[in-house]
Nucleic acid binder design. Sequence first.
DNA 1: CCATCTTTGTGCACGCGTTCACAAAGACAT
DNA 2: ATGTCTTTGTGAACGCGTGCACAAAGATGG
Lengths: 218, 218
Amino acid sequence: MPTVSSEELAAAAGVNSAKLRKDFSYLGSYGTRGVGYDVEYLVYQISRELGLTQDWPVVIVGIGNLGAALANYGGFASRGFRVAALIDADPAMAGKPVAGIPVQHTDELERIIEDNGVSIGVIATPAGAAQQVCDRLVAAGVTSILNFAPTVLTVPDGVDVRKVDLSIELQILAFHEQRKAGEESAAAAADGAAAPAARRTPSTDQGPDGDVPAVMPA
Amino acid sequence: MPTVSSEELAAAAGVNSAKLRKDFSYLGSYGTRGVGYDVEYLVYQISRELGLTQDWPVVIVGIGNLGAALANYGGFASRGFRVAALIDADPAMAGKPVAGIPVQHTDELERIIEDNGVSIGVIATPAGAAQQVCDRLVAAGVTSILNFAPTVLTVPDGVDVRKVDLSIELQILAFHEQRKAGEESAAAAADGAAAPAARRTPSTDQGPDGDVPAVMPA
DNA sequence: CCATCTTTGTGCACGCGTTCACAAAGACAT
DNA sequence: ATGTCTTTGTGAACGCGTGCACAAAGATGG
């Protein structure tokens, strides 16, 4: 039986082994003392807890460049997501296949959601159309929305919205870049008010976390 | 002189006013007691600290659907980013304009980076090409990389990499969705090992934060 | 010029998450 | 069966960030 110890996993993930064990204990995942965790069982447990074992039908609304990119994105299928439909407001797009799936017109939105039992919607429309699309999705029964449009959506209670701003990550890179090149010259460029303020040492991982200011303008 | 108090800003942003004041104090931003913060000066200070006042030339490598979507993304310009060049390995793409910018061939990569003083690169290639592109970018002088390809990149010290996985946000939504519909049935579906574990109350904001498990498989 | 009022800047305490450290548990060898 | 060795699971301590509360500062009015 292939196993892994918390120590090995922690080293691979770059985290503390005690924390990893404590996290696993919350999931009720039982390891075997003196041996470690059964890999297969562990993968199954985590997959189930994260919802990877379920089949999540999603609809993508707005099949522009971004919508098409999302439809073609390979990572979805392996994460338990199934693109149930592509929807666009442009009648000229209707019937045209993107990533092997025919685009359907916005008029079909409510029917598609109901027929497929879709509870997750992805909005990749221009900003102007986003709220309207959002309202229709919610009215049709969608309770989770991933929003790529540069607008803050208003939704009733019980509906989850996550906004993805493609420029935020870039901005974080620029922020660090600025610190790399010319800590002192940048500070001296303005009036003498700038207090450099000690920062945490930058982490070496590639995740969407790390030291970012908590407050920034929308 | 238009001003805002920390209390007003905190209410608008949904954060604690004391924390906001403390954050501002790290930036050396001086408010006026009894009055508040000078809006214009504050905006300038934060913009400068975040690097928004600088002009950041970026190159986008891999002009597929995603690359094109990024090139068309309006949010970049307003955040201080300028798309200096679009680069693709396909010779058929060369010269074809995307978002008003002609696509250039990969052969030109080093020259473009040097000529424009580019320090930030965006990789939107297929996974297979990502590391190779990354190496060339780094060798040419790029020190910050935004990676949309589903690969973990290896870079020398001093180079920042941020990986964007478009399916992660979707996965987080699915995770919450799973909790919404059938806390008990999902737990009972598997063997009796599952310990539900109390969660924090879900936050109502739309940011890329909130309660997510710290450890998940790549 | 003094009193009052508003709002900042910050010391301090609380709470939470992370880490340490160890006892309990099980495997494995003898 | 007994002892040893490895690794888990977790109680306890540490550290850090957040929020409270207040003194200092400056504006404003009399």
